[in-house]
Design a binder for these strands. Structure first.
Lengths: 188, 188
DNA sequence: TACGGTGATTGCAGAACCTGTCATCACCGT
DNA sequence: ACGGTGATGACAGGTTCTGCAATCACCGTA
């Protein structure tokens, strides 16, 4: 058992994705993940709150970044544009991990448990954006509605990004998704 | 142990809400819920997929009703109005259960686990509406965006309905929430 | 080199969740 | 009286997750 080789979380994440794709999420135990990473089950739980969380690395810091970017946006920018810009500013990270995102999505789509966690993360993102918009002086309910619709546009962009055979950037798809949103909102 | 006294699910739900408010969600075991209802733990799991599900009675049938109502809306109605009308059509059920909804909300707010499940239900509602809108000929991404923003407006209305000291109906709050949505969308 | 502090890792026990399997029971029609 | 049906119960077992305390490697300091 190599002890302290560093990168513990990353090793656990890779081991988890490997095993999930090999045997499926439910047929993989936390103990197996830890063993493949050269660690123990207990250590897994020192790094991740539960079994699902290993599939959502960096989500919390992404949320924090978006919140910060929305708060720091120029005052003359519309709320929706501010959120859009914040998403685009953080999109490089994803473009560099397209393949990992693909595998992750396949696992997520196959298990309701995991999609539940994903929705929870998206809800947290929405609440963070709502809070940031409020500090920009946007009152409720506009803040809540704008945040929610932004998250939906973001989801849409992410889906297109993963499905795009042309390998367009996430930023590009965010741009078109928010254009679609403007167009659709005009019909409401 | 009264066997087959009828209303098994309802008894389990009431026992669960009682115990959750008395000791809290985490400090209540499924076995305790079942015992208070005069049943066994195994029977609980014959009626509910897991411990959380006991707090979401009728959600699935509500989703089915909304899907149906959206599909059956008059053709001249705009997509957003169709969803709004579908919500209002199913709002009586909630108005008759305001107090239970209050207690349920207090329990939900205190536990991330349960809010996660709630988000999952809302996501399922959104997907059902998306599907219904597509059968009405609304193409993507308009169907997805319209459904998502409708669900958000619904959440907003439900929150106001529970907080309203005047005890206004859910239908009333749905009306004003969708008006807010129209107003906000004009700024996008 | 010796020593102690710090933080990560581990072992162990145990509660609770959830499932599979099969037996048992009440009801109902014949 | 009899058999079918469906809900309930008993039991075993795996898995998830937590609390607690011990162990280990590293690092600065004397």
């Amino acid at each position: 058992m190599g002890r302290w080789p560093g990168g513990t979380q990353e090793r656990l994440q890779e081991a988890a994705i490997e095993l999930f794709t090999e045997r499926g999420y439910e047929r993989t135990t936390v103990a197996e993940i830890a063993t493949r990473a050269g660690l123990t089950e207990r250590t897994f739980y020192n790094h991740f709150a539960d079994k699902r969380e290993v599939l959502f690395p960096g989500q919390d810091s992404f949320i924090a970044k978006v919140r910060e970017a929305v708060g720091a946006a120029p005052a003359e920018q519309s709320p929706l544009d501010a959120v859009n810009a914040a998403f685009i500013a953080g999109s490089d990270w994803f473009d560099q991990r397209r393949e990992a995102a693909q595998r992750r999505r396949h696992i997520l789509d196959a298990h309701t448990d995991l999609r539940e966690r994903e929705w929870a993360k998206l809800a947290a993102l929405g609440e963070a954006i709502t809070a940031a918009l409020r500090t920009r002086g946007i009152p409720d309910p506009a803040a809540t509605l704008t945040a929610a619709v932004s998250v939906t546009a973001y989801q849409l962009a992410a889906a297109r990004w993963l499905a795009d055979p042309q390998y367009g950037t996430l930023g590009h798809h965010l741009h078109t998704s928010f254009e679609d949103l403007h167009r659709t909102a005009r019909s409401w």
